[in-house]
């Protein structure tokens, strides 16, 4: 009897371990695994969100199809990383030269609470004139973020305010709206500028 219950416990323990391992596999490597981070953004043609640009016009991802584009996320209350990204982009555009006029350059805020249309208009006015600012309801910004496979998160600060964590990479799309590449935060311009040129060269049908 004793032996049997010991065996029973052993079997139960074995079963529990097996179940734990199975659950672990399911969640980490199996069908229950979360979508891998850093996966490619959707093509712009497969995205769906409605925002307002800094001039008050309704905008969406379909407006970026037809011309190569450069899209990034940030917020205007960001004192360090975002102005650096904006001035990096301005300097890349200066290096690309006149061709930069063929690019759409979009800064989407992840902080619509503070970044109203007026706040965006004031802010983007200090950087390269080609940069446009998009804002809108939080639900729409969330949809945009999901389409780009990017992330953002509101974080409380000790002064009663808050800051935003967000994907700081710049996304490049060709004229057909297909994702081409990302430029990492503060990537040297000798790498960034050729990536921009590549996005601009990719023609419909994939020929360059």
């Amino acid at each position: 009897m004793r032996r049997r219950s010991a065996f029973g416990y052993g079997a139960a323990a074995f079963g529990a371990i097996g179940l734990t391992l199975f659950l672990g596999w399911w969640r980490v490597d199996g069908p229950g695994a979360p979508e891998p981070m850093g996966q490619r953004p959707l093509p712009l043609t497969a995205m769906d969100f409605r925002l307002t640009d800094h001039q008050g016009q309704l905008v969406g991802p379909e407006m970026l199809v037809g011309r190569p584009s450069m899209v990034f996320f940030g917020f205007t209350y960001c004192p360090d990383v975002c102005p650096t990204t904006l001035s990096d982009i301005s300097s890349w555009l200066d290096m690309v030269g006149e061709d930069a006029e063929r690019l759409d350059i979009i800064f989407i805020t992840v902080d619509p609470e503070r970044d109203t249309v007026d706040a965006m208009a004031e802010y983007v006015g200090y950087f390269h004139p080609a940069i446009r600012g998009w804002t809108g309801p939080e639900a729409q910004i969330k949809r945009a973020i999901e389409g780009f496979r990017a992330t953002y998160e509101k974080v409380a600060g000790e002064d009663g305010g808050y800051t935003m964590n967000h994907t700081a990479s710049v996304f490049l799309f060709d004229a057909e709206g297909r994702f081409v590449s990302t430029i990492d935060y503060h990537e040297p311009r000798e790498f960034a500028v050729p990536k921009i040129r590549r996005a601009m060269k990719e023609k419909p049908g994939g020929a360059t």
Partner: peptide, 20 residues
């Protein structure tokens, strides 16, 4: 009124964050 040394950092997924 509230000057502090902060650090911006970037994780492997390219997500930037900032903390004292």
């Amino acid at each position: 009124m509230m000057p502090e040394i902060h650090r911006s950092s970037m994780n492997e997924q390219g997500v930037s964050s900032m903390a004292p």
